[in-house]
Design a protein around this nucleic acid. Structure first.
Lengths: 253, 253
DNA sequence: CGCTGCATTGATATGTATCAAACCGCGTGG
DNA sequence: CCACGCGGTTTGATACATATCAATGCAGCG
C-alpha cells in the first residue's frame, strides 16, 4: 500500500517537537512583510482575476511577487506536456523564487480567485535589502519556508494513503487559514476535484471517494448544496485520522 | 495507473524548451562558488564519513554547508516517525536552507560516502555578501535551484509509473555527474534498494524489479558482481524510455 | 564457515486507476 | 419559465500497478 518509513530500530523523533509558530506570529510576520515592502521598495499592485496568470513558465524573470489577497496555485510544466500543481499559496506567500536561478520562471502562477499581488523588481529588492537588512531576512525566510513546504509535500505524497492525503490536505489548508487569523472551521475549495487530485497525486474519482468517506465519518461536512465548501468541525480530529491511518493497531505492535 | 496531466485542450508547452545549462557552465559555477567562499568568508572544512550527519533535524540553525566532495542525502522527519529521503546532493550543492526560517534544521543531512563539507556561519555569509554582491547572488541561485528541484521531484512522483521513476532517477543522476564533469556512463549507487525506494515513493522490491526490467531491456547493465554499480550505455535512451512510458501509442491520438 | 544484511524473484493481496453511467447545479436560449 | 446542454461530481464495476508476504540466493566479513 505505501512505503514504510520504519527502519530496523525504533523511529527516532526530531529532537524538538515541530510545533507551529504561535497563533499570531504568522499574521504578524505577514503584516511586517507587507509593511517593509511598502516602505522601502517600489511595488506595483495588480489585481488578478480567477484564471489569470501572475506569470507563466518560460517568461523571463525579473520580479518577485507577494500575495496581498486571494489564493493562487503554481503549476510545474514538463517539456513533454505533463503538468503538476506543486503549490497552493495564500496571503503573505511569495511567488517566483524558482525564476531566480534560471533567469526565467519555471512554473505558472495562476489566480484561483480574485486577489491582489504586489510585484517588486528583484534587483530593486536586493538594492533595498542592503540598506535594510530585515528585508533580506524576510526574503530568505520565505525561500526557506518554501523549501520546507515542498519537502513536506514530498513526505505526505510518499507516506500517506489517498484518504490520508486528502485529510492532510484539508488539515493543512485549515492551518494556513488559522495562521492568517481567518476562520478555519469552514473552507472554500476553489478547486475542482481534478485539480485537487493532480495536486495530491491521485485521480478525481479517488478524491471524491475520499471526501465522501470523510463526510460519512463525520470528519467533514458539506453545508451547502454545492460541494465547494467544506465544514471542519474539529481540525484536530483530521490530524488524528491521518495518524490512525498510519498505525491501524496502535495497541499491538 | 497514474494521474493524467492532460486537460481538455492540447498541452501547452513551456515557451522556451527547458534546456540544461551548457556542459561546463555548472562545473564553472561550482568552482566559482568554492572560490568566492574561500576568499571572502570564514569557512571550516570537515571530513565526514559514510553514515555521519552534517546536521540533524531539530539542531539549532547557525550555518550553511557546501559540499566540496562526496555524496549526501537529506531525510525529512515527521513528528510521528515517518521518514522520507527528500533530496540527494553532490559537489557544489548547499545543505541547510530549511533551517533559516525555523531557526532549526528540519531534516537530517547524512553522508553516503566519505566527503568534505565547507561550513559557513549564516551571519558571516550575510555580512560578507553585503560587501561582495556576487556571493548573495550565488546563495539565492542555490536556494532557487533547490526549490525547482523539489518541484521536479514532485512532478516525477505524481506523473510517472514506478519503472519510469527509476529510469528518471538514474537519468537525473547521470546528468548531475555530467554537469560536474564526471563520467556518467557508469554510476555507483551508494544506496540500498530500500533507500532508493523511499526516495522514489515505492518499495524496495519494486525498485529491484524495475532495475531488472531496465537491465533486460539493455537500458542499463550491472558490470560488477555486486549490484551497486550501474552502467548506462546511452543516457538519452533512458530519457526516451520515460517518454515512451507516458504515451504508449504515440502514433494514434 | 556460517552469519548477516541486502537483492532477487515469485505468488498473492489490495489500493487506486480506469471505464462507465447517472446525477446535479447552473447558465443559456428558445 | 422551462428545456436543454454542459462542466463538474458521485458512485459502481472492473482492471491493473504496486504492495505485501515469502522463499531463495548472493556477497562480504568476523
Amino acid at each position: 500500500m505505501l512505503t514504510t518509513a520504519a527502519t530496523t530500530a525504533a523511529p527516532r523523533l526530531p529532537a524538538v517537537t515541530a510545533s507551529r509558530p504561535g497563533q499570531h506570529a504568522v499574521a504578524e510576520r505577514i503584516a511586517e512583510t507587507l509593511r517593509l515592502l511598502q516602505d522601502h521598495v517600489a511595488i506595483t499592485r495588480r489585481v488578478v482575476h480567477t484564471g489569470e496568470h501572475v506569470y507563466q513558465a518560460g517568461e523571463s524573470f525579473g520580479s518577485l511577487h507577494v500575495i496581498h489577497s486571494g489564493f493562487f496555485k503554481t503549476v510545474n510544466l514538463a517539456p513533454d506536456g505533463r503538468e503538476q500543481v506543486v503549490g497552493l499559496h495564500f496571503k503573505g506567500d511569495w511567488l517566483g523564487f524558482d525564476g531566480i536561478a534560471a533567469g526565467q520562471y519555471g512554473c505558472d502562477a495562476v489566480a484561483m480567485d480574485t486577489g491582489e499581488v504586489w510585484t517588486v523588481r528583484y534587483d530593486a529588492l536586493l538594492a533595498a535589502s542592503t540598506a535594510h537588512a530585515p528585508l533580506l531576512g524576510l526574503l530568505h525566510a520565505a525561500m526557506s519556508r518554501e523549501i520546507t513546504r515542498d519537502r513536506d509535500s514530498l513526505l505526505s505524497l510518499c507516506t500517506l494513503s489517498a484518504d490520508a492525503r486528502v485529510a492532510e490536505f484539508l488539515r493543512a489548508w485549515a492551518d494556513a487559514m488559522a495562521d492568517r487569523g481567518l476562520r478555519n472551521d469552514q473552507i472554500t475549495l476553489r478547486m475542482t476535484r481534478a485539480e485537487i487530485g493532480n495536486y495530491l497525486g491521485m485521480t478525481l474519482e479517488t478524491v471524491s471517494r475520499a471526501l465522501s468517506r470523510l463526510s460519512r465519518d463525520k470528519l467533514i461536512a458539506f453545508p451547502e448544496r454545492g460541494r465547494r465548501d467544506v465544514q471542519i468541525p474539529d481540525v484536530r480530529a483530521l490530524g488524528a485520522y491521518v495518524q490512525r491511518s498510519l498505525s491501524p493497531n496502535p495497541t499491538l505492535q
